[in-house]
């Protein structure tokens, strides 16, 4: 005996694990926004530095802190077509260098002419940055040392360079956070594509025809069965197909049969339809677990090249879906 097929929208088969990547991506995004909250600007000034004569800022107190680091950002105010090699130095209380970072900065410009067109270009790379973490709290002094200063012809220059210096404390390294955000977002998108392939494939059968029949043991209580029908059609594809999906029970008796109307995605070349693709996804709960037959019939059948049925059991969903329950006793 068959109970009448019952269709019900349910969120019972939603997999919460599918939401975790999205929640984590949101957390990474929040972390990026909030990462600037803890930072404080200690110094924001400019300094004129003569070549070979280190110039320094007033001492600042470096504290050992659990979050962030002391960030020194330096921007060399270099006129066009000059090169400078400079060093950010960190000195201790006795004036001894305890850390240094070397930057080779340049600014160049020029003009170009090619195939009757011309224009000008200007490029530079002037920023230097050093993040330091303290192993102990101590006063430090930040100095800038110009090691080499020339024009593009290689002539030594002997004039002061203006450096813009910003020192911040508690700065979080956002390069890691960006990497984390892209990584988690990438996987979050992957999960969206993986939803349709959750569960175990129990039928994957195709036919170069407009109908396909397959039978397998599937179903059971609390088992979501996802039935996917794919139709490939030729250049005479209509705008919609009628797909009749029929389910037969173990005795061969029809327990479900319904015609679904699906839209056809046409692929066009110069506005002319070359082929069509359409698909139908339906969800079932089949009780008890036994042998079920699936029969797909596509009409109108003239343009149909191939019909495929894929049945997955133990499927999961991202949103509530309409589930057809077939129970036989």
């Amino acid at each position: 005996m068959h109970a009448h097929p019952k269709t019900q929208r349910t969120g019972h088969f939603i997999d919460i694990f599918l939401y975790i990547p999205w929640v984590v991506t949101g957390v990474m995004f929040l972390a990026l926004i909030l990462s600037g909250v803890v930072e404080r600007t200690l110094v924001s000034t400019s300094l004129f530095v003569d070549p070979k004569v280190p110039a320094q800022l007033n001492p600042i107190q470096l504290k050992k802190e659990p979050i962030g680091a002391l960030r020194i950002d330096v921007n060399a105010g270099l006129p066009s077509n000059q090169w400078v090699t400079y060093e950010i130095q960190v000195k201790d209380q006795q004036g001894k260098v305890i850390a240094s970072g070397l930057k080779q900065a340049w600014a160049e410009s020029g003009s170009w002419a090619e195939e009757g067109e011309s224009g000008s270009w200007a490029e530079d790379d002037l920023m230097a940055g050093l993040d330091i973490r303290a192993s102990q709290s101590e006063p430090i002094t930040i100095a800038i040392n110009v090691l080499d200063y020339t024009d593009t012809a290689g002539n030594e220059l002997n004039q002061p360079i203006r450096f813009g210096i910003t020192v911040k404390n508690g700065v979080v390294d956002d390069r890691f956070l960006w990497a984390g955000l892209f990584g988690t977002a990438f996987i979050a998108v992957l999960t969206l594509f993986s939803v349709a392939s959750t569960g175990k494939v129990v039928i994957n059968k195709s036919n170069r025809d407009s109908d396909v029949v397959a039978r397998t043991v599937t179903g059971g209580a609390e088992q979501l069965v996802r039935v996917l029908v794919k139709v490939q059609s030729d250049e005479h594809s209509p705008s919609t197909f009628n797909i009749r999906l029929t389910v037969h029970d173990a005795n061969g008796e029809q327990s479900y049969s319904k015609v679904h109307s699906v839209n056809v995605n046409h692929s066009k070349d110069d506005g002319v339809v070359k082929s069509g693709r359409s698909s139908l996804t339906t969800f079932f709960v089949l009780e008890p677990r036994t042998s079920y037959g699936f029969h797909v019939e596509v009409t109108p059948d003239v343009s149909v090249d191939r019909t495929r049925i894929i049945v997955r059991e133990n499927a999961r969903t991202l949103f509530p879906v309409d589930v057809i329950t077939l129970k036989s006793t």
């Binding site: 990462s35 962030g68 850390a99 993040d131 973490r133 700065v171 390294d173 956002d174 390069r175 956070l177």
Partner: peptide, 8 residues
């Protein structure tokens, strides 16, 4: 990022 593993 928050403990600045890439800092000197």
């Amino acid at each position: 990022g928050f403990t600045q593993q890439a800092a000197l």
